[in-house]
């Protein structure tokens, strides 16, 4: 149970690259107003400039710089992904702890809700809810969180269940330790690494889902998320019979793939490292 600091060197090579890429992307997202030479929402060139020195990734149909859009889109993708995953992870975690610790009717109630949520096909439901609540980033985060909390809830519940049978917990309980004491002293330190891995996994799921919803036209229509750039590009009539797809479709697509890939690699490595420790 000794706390050990995560070391960068304990990641595999691909993990290191992934972390560097993530740092770069986060940097790009946070400082996009300073590093982007062009505005992300105003035309700065003529329509459909192929990648050149002024517009590194070219421009879209309105003449808006694609590099700036990708940078700014990283903000949306990351913030949607991370906040949806955090809400789902923490909310699901709390429910999981409650279910695991109290058992009985609380457990049954929570687990039946989880069952119902698992049975619901999430993509169609997300599309319906997205259409119902109207397109906005807040709603997307809410909808994504609403459909992702079951995973962490189940994992945490089973962890708490198994921990409850451990001797040191039983001893602590026999000395009169209450839920609060156990929670902060034992459960949370034990659960945190697992929760972290789940949240990271959820992040990539949420990013893809956000891109997917935006791609289907359920995102905020004037935002510049990656999914929406793709949506506009693919809905441009006859895009594949022109050259425009080479930069207009490919840049957001590659950005999404790289982001999701690096999150996946990081979570894989993290899982490995933490498993060894536990």
């Amino acid at each position: 149970m000794k706390k050990e600091k995560l070391k960068f060197s304990s990641f595999s090579n691909s993990g290191k690259i992934a972390i560097l890429f993530m740092i770069l992307l986060i940097f790009m997202a946070i400082f996009s107003p300073y590093i982007c030479p062009h505005p992300y929402n105003l035309p700065s060139g003529s329509p459909f400039e192929s990648p050149n020195r002024v517009h590194w990734f070219g421009t879209d149909d309105l003449g808006i710089d694609l590099f700036s859009q990708i940078c700014y889109g990283a903000r949306i993708s990351l913030s949607v992904g991370i906040s949806a995953a955090l809400i789902a992870g923490i909310g699901g975690g709390i429910l999981g702890i409650l279910a695991g610790y109290y058992g009985g009717i609380v457990d049954k109630l929570i687990m039946r809700i989880v069952d119902i949520m698992i049975v619901l096909p999430d993509l169609p439901m997300m599309i319906i809810l997205g259409a119902f609540f109207g397109p906005s980033i807040k709603n997307i985060i809410f909808v994504l969180a609403f459909f992702s909390w079951t995973g962490p809830a189940r994992i945490i519940r089973s962890k708490v269940l198994s921990m409850k049978k451990e001797n040191y917990i039983l001893v602590a309980e026999s000395y009169g330790a209450g839920f609060g004491y156990l929670l902060f002293k034992h459960f949370i330190p034990e659960i945190l690494p697992i929760l972290m891995v789940t949240i990271i996994k959820l992040t990539s799921k949420a990013i893809v889902a956000e891109a997917g919803l935006a791609f289907l036209g359920l995102g905020d229509p004037t935002s510049k998320s990656w999914g929406l750039i793709l949506n506009h590009a693919i809905n441009f009539r006859g895009i594949y019979f022109t050259d425009f797809w080479k930069w207009w479709v490919m840049t957001p697509l590659i950005a999404i793939i790289f982001l999701v890939l690096s999150i996946a690699i990081i979570s894989r490595d993290l899982e490995k490292i933490l498993n060894e420790k536990l």
Binding site: V208, F215, L253, I257, V260, L261, E271
Partner: peptide, 25 residues
């Protein structure tokens, strides 16, 4: 093995996103 699974998952996601355009072409 896990890494492979992720790769496959990502490829599927990428294919879904890029539409079926390639097949149609």
């Amino acid at each position: 093995k896990k890494g492979f699974k992720f790769l496959i998952f990502i490829m599927i996601a990428a294919m879904l996103l890029s539409g079926c355009s390639n097949e149609k072409n």
